[in-house]
Structure formats: C-alpha cells, structure tokens
Design a protein around this nucleic acid. Structure first.
Length: 412
DNA sequence: AACATAGGCAACCGCGTGCGA
DNA sequence: ATCGCACGCGGTTGCCTATGT
C-alpha cells in the first residue's frame, strides 16, 4: 500500500483559517459540493491542501454542527460511550449528532477526563480506584468483560458502516427484490440492529443468535460479577439477566424518542439489564447455558465461561450472517433498537461524576429533565453498595445507549 | 502592569484502510 | 495481485486566552 502523499506542501498555507478562506470554502461547497477534496482547493481558489479543507469543513464550517457548551445529556453520553468504546471518537460522535469527533475528543481531554480523575476513576478503564476494596474479583471482571463488550460494539459499528455501504450499492437491485423473502448478503458481519430484525422476521425462532450474544455477555460478565458480589437490595444474590423485550413494554412510554432513525420506527425492542433474584438464564430456554448455571463455584469456571461466552458470541455473529440472508432490506421494514433515554437519565454513576464537579455551575436538574434520582449517593464517596448500584445503572445505560441507532448520525 | 502558567481549542501529522486502475 | 490515491481517524502540537502571582 502506497502511502498517500498528503498534498503538495510547497506554497500551501497552514495554520488558522481566515474569514476570507472560510468564505471561499463555504461558497464553493455550497455551490458544488466538496467532491474530491484533493481537487477542491484549486477550484475554490484556496492555497490549502485538500486535507486541510476537509478538516475545516467537517470540524467547523459544516452547517449542521452544533457549537457551544455540551449539555448534561451530551456529557453523559460521551462518558458512557467512552467507557464502552474507548478513544473511538468518530464512533462516539455518531451518537452525538451535530458534534464532531474532534470537538468531543477535545472536550473529553480537557473536561471530562479531569473530572473522572478527580473522582478517583480511571478515565481509561472507567474503573473506580476503590474497586479493589469493593470487590477485587467481581468488579475487575466486570471491567474485563466490558472490554469484550467494547470489542463487540466496535465490530458492530464497523459492520454497520459496511452494511450501509453495501446497502447503498445494492439499493437498486434490492428494490426489485423487496417481494422476495430472501436475498444473498455478502456482509461478513451483522449488527445488533439486524439481530433484532432477523429475529422479527422469524418470531417463532427460539434459537436466536442474538440471544447467544447477549447471553454470552450475561454469563461472561454480569451474571458472574453479580454472583460474586455481596451487595444489598437489588444486588443481593442476584442473577443479573439481560432481558430483551421483543415488543415495547408499557414502560417504553416513558422513554423519549431518540434513536431509531435509520431503520424504522414500528417497534422498539429494548435491552436492559435486570437484576433479579433467582435464576433467569434457564428461562431463556437455552440448554447450553445450564452448565454454567449449575456451577457452584464460578471461579473455577471463570476462564471457561469467558472462553465459551466469546465462542458463543463468535458463533452468534456467524449465525447472524446467516440469519441476515432471510432478512428484509436494509431500507425496508427494519426494526430498530432505541435508546432508552430514561435509563440514561436514571443512571447514577455519571451523576456522581457530574455532581462532584463542584466547580461546574450547572446543576443536575439542568439538561432536559436529567434528574438526579440518586441523591443519597451524590456524595461521590462511593460506598460499596452505592457503587455497585451506581455501576449497574451506569453500565445498564451504556448498553442501552450503544444498542440504539444514532438518529441522524453522519455515519449513516 | 508585566510576566508566568494553565486551560481550551483549532489545526496538523501520520497511519490505516477502502477502492479503482 | 499489486499499486497508488483519497479519505477517515486518532494522537499531538501550537496558538490564543484566561487566570494567577
């Protein structure tokens, strides 16, 4: 692969853009579109390289850019997504329409990271320093397992992007095949969105691949971490269950209508972690998980669980690909996952962070009803129980967030 | 008022990847 | 299969402004 000669640097201007340059670029793009960035500068009469023009446009001049202070909701979204995706700013930006990846990155580095650090939270792992005191086993496993979730989400985002590209290429031919129940898909990976879709196509299917995926998470992560915890209340001897609501439950009426933009709006499947007493995995009717369930010493199984979980996960993706072949078109009657905004609003761990920022003059009541319903934990000291509960909400909201589709993501 | 330091942000740099020739 | 181009992305730099001494 030849490395691209970025641009002919001789005679090209660098540094801050002048209003005149902005005007030229803006005027040209408004009239002609950006087209080929490389050719744009000469056509627009700019002494800049195409790359510089593209950056200026995407990060500053684009009309759909929202500038100014980040809202509380946006901050929460960034924190939650960063916990799951890491420094994948473009992926994070797809969930924050009107914000650029550069802006998000800067905001993270200059504001949010510091706040996390201030609270004793590692901004990289999002792990509280007290983890070792609280539950050196469970919490660390949770973090480790979440990294697997992040890997999956990374794959999902990439698969989504690929799928969109392919769907665009095939859009015309697919139009002609809408009546057909099957079409060949060359997509090597599928997405959570399509997991839903494929399942909806065949509601009778009891071996949905997506359940394997989520069960993998469940058994590999949440189930295990909660089982080793000795929390109180909801976390008392719980079996954490990742339930998947095929149809929108009544509670969905309380959720705001974010997300779901790209695929459809008829149904609103929702993912949520449910901490409940008693077993739940077997309720899913998946025999292969019973072995884990019957284990009385999970630590002996921990490696096996993780290994099997990821194996199942991999199979799940593979099966997804197969299932996709029976799915309808991307642009057709797709169902979508939706952001459970209510869950986000309820999450507490991030509120701790935001609350603890005494220098921040914004109150938690600000930001479109982002209420702090966990005022008893707002001290930020993070007692063990509070931390567990906060963490549950925290990751709960993360998962809901990432399984949603950005409403008007530039990615799509 | 002058200087030093820190914070914030726009822009640049270099790498990875997709795609067409 | 290979090569070169174009673009996207994440990390980093450097300038400007605010704040402190």
């Amino acid at each position: 692969m030849g490395r691209s000669p970025c641009c002919d640097k001789v005679g090209l201007k660098k540094g801050p853009w002048t209003p005149e340059e902005d005007q030229k670029l803006l005027a040209y793009i408004e009239e002609h579109g950006h087209g080929c960035w490389r050719a744009l500068p000469s056509k627009a009469g700019l002494q800049r390289c195409g790359k510089s023009c593209r950056l200026r446009w995407t990060n500053y001049l684009r009309p759909d850019i929202k500038r100014g202070k980040f809202s509380l909701q946006e901050e929460q979204t960034i924190i939650q997504l960063h916990a799951l995706l890491g420094n994948r700013w473009s992926a994070i930006a797809t969930h924050l329409p009107k914000r650029t990846d550069n802006e998000i990155k800067n905001y993270w580095n200059t504001h949010l990271k510091k706040r996390l650090t201030k609270l004793g939270i590692d901004p990289i792992t999002h792990k509280h320093k007290n983890d070792t005191l609280l539950s050196s086993d469970g919490q660390s496993k949770t973090v480790a397992n979440l990294s697997h979730m992040a890997q999956w989400e990374s794959a999902r985002l990439e698969a989504e992007a690929r799928l969109v590209r392919e769907s665009k290429l095939r859009s015309h031919s697919l139009q002609n095949q809408l009546g057909s129940s099957t079409f060949a898909s060359s997509s090597s990976a599928s997405t959570s969105v399509l997991i839903i879709n494929s399942h909806k196509q065949d509601p009778s299917s009891s071996a949905s691949p997506r359940l394997d995926v989520f069960k993998a998470w469940n058994n590999g992560g949440w189930l295990k971490s909660n089982e080793v915890s000795n929390g109180v209340g909801d976390l008392e001897s719980p079996t954490s269950t990742l339930s998947f609501c095929e149809t929108a439950p009544p509670i969905m009426a309380t959720t705001s209508g974010g997300g779901g933009g790209i695929l459809g709006e008829n149904t609103m499947p929702m993912i949520e972690f449910v901490a409940c007493s008693g077993s739940s995995v077997k309720e899913e009717g998946d025999q292969e998980w019973k072995g884990y369930e019957s284990s009385t010493n999970l630590t002996e199984y921990k490696d096996g669980i993780m290994e099997n979980s990821m194996t199942t996960f991999t199979c799940g993706l593979h099966e997804l690909t197969m299932s996709m072949e029976g799915a309808t078109t991307w642009s057709g009657s797709h169902e979508s996952l939706r952001t459970n905004d209510h869950a986000i609003a309820e999450q507490g761990f991030t509120n701790l962070l935001l609350n603890a920022n005494s220098g921040d003059d914004r109150s938690l009541s600000e930001g479109g009803g982002d209420s702090n319903n966990r005022d008893d934990s707002s001290s930020g000291n993070g007692s063990g129980d509070d931390f567990c509960e906060d963490n549950k909400n925290y990751w709960n909201s993360i998962l809901n967030l990432v399984t949603s589709s950005p409403s008007d993501s530039p990615m799509f």
